[in-house]
């Protein structure tokens, strides 16, 4: 019997008002020590999925889900108070722009200590000591100095390291990271991703990583779910997904990224025509059919989820063996 996953989401739906359904029946699991990447373009609902999982949706958004379990606990029944006890303690989140998630009026040290004191019975000094230790662990060379500094005195890369250290204050089991390296320079991005991978090995952290960058996905993911128009259109172990992409959208995405040494310089890149549709409740059929080169009448009807291999599912009416060379 496989152990119960750390995070289990099934049939998650999020509506904004009556006309927009941003997340339409997303299911995913994150196991202990595993990185699950949720990848897709802007507007596909990946960030909303993360926020809905943490119970952090903005007012006006309505969440409904078949199942939302964290470490065996049903999150849908928890009160706001019980949820905020979990957040920052057993499940932590880091965002794209660390400046907006740090309070400019307090020092790094006091913000980090406060996170811990909110959840644990520790003294200020103990919390500060752990903060300093974690800053050192995330590769900050002079933690004592940084603890006394304010967010604006740090560079973007340092702030994101601080955010990671802060997320780790209470030794969480699950980390949800929403585009954690998108605002950073490439050299810093690699450093931050290495850090996260290191902590994962050390602590057995489960990570749900949200990103639009297929390069990041390829290097860090154990499992990948590709989202389009509020749905997971394909989900597979990372090596499977890159070796054998099956959904036309996944293939289109992969074909549109230039890869030095693989795709000839100056050659035409594959691209997906058109733009992401805005989909409301009651939409039927495949959300990608207007942009898909293989669309047929069947795409307007209900789309079954098919198996392309062990643990590899995709949501499309095409057979898994459709010709690879005709990418969308």
């Amino acid at each position: 019997m496989t152990p119960e996953p750390l995070l289990e989401v099934a049939d998650l739906r999020v509506r904004f008002g009556a006309r927009v359904e941003a997340v339409r029946g997303v299911s995913l699991t994150v196991n202990k020590g595993e990185t699950h990447c949720l990848v897709g373009e802007s507007g596909c609902g990946k960030s909303v999925t993360a926020l809905a999982t943490m119970g952090l949706l903005a007012r006006g958004a309505v969440r409904s889900s078949g199942r939302l379990r964290f470490a065996g606990q049903d999150l849908t029944n928890l009160s706001e108070r019980e949820l905020s006890k979990l957040r920052g303690d057993r499940m932590a989140m880091i965002f794209q722009e660390p400046m907006t998630s740090l309070n400019p009026a307090f020092t790094i040290g006091s913000q980090m200590a406060e996170v811990m004191q909110r959840h644990r019975k520790v003294t200020r000094a103990e919390a500060m000591e752990r903060a300093g230790f974690l800053l050192f662990k995330v590769g900050i060379t002079n933690p004592a100095l940084r603890l006394g500094q304010f967010p604006h005195q740090l560079s973007g890369g340092l702030r994101q390291r601080v955010m990671i250290a802060m997320a780790l204050m209470c030794e969480p089991e699950l980390l949800i990271a929403d585009e954690p390296t998108t605002a950073l320079d490439v050299t810093v991005q690699a450093q931050i991703l290495r850090l996260l991978a290191g902590f994962q090995r050390e602590l057995g952290l489960g990570i749900l990583l949200i990103t639009h960058d297929l390069g990041v996905v390829a290097r860090v993911a154990h499992r990948v779910s590709v989202m389009y128009a509020g749905e997971v259109v394909e989900s597979a172990p990372a090596s499977q997904l890159f070796a054998n992409p099956t959904h036309p959208y996944t293939r289109g995405l992969l074909a549109s990224v230039p890869v030095p040494g693989k795709i000839a310089r100056g050659s035409r890149l594959g691209s997906i025509p058109g733009t992401v549709p805005r989909i409301g409740p009651g939409f039927a059929g495949c959300g990608f059919r207007d942009r898909c080169g293989h669309a047929s009448e069947a795409c307007a009807g209900p789309i079954a989820v098919q198996q392309a291999g062990p643990d590899h599912i995709y949501r499309c009416q095409l057979q898994a063996s459709w010709p690879q060379d005709q990418a969308a």
Partner: peptide
């Protein structure tokens, strides 16, 4: 260092160590 830090969509290569410090 810049070239080493480019993440191409090729799984299995891992995350490069850029070694530029903080």
């Amino acid at each position: 260092a810049l070239l080493a830090s480019v993440l191409t969509p090729e799984p299995g290569l891992g995350i490069p160590d850029v070694g530029l410090g903080d």
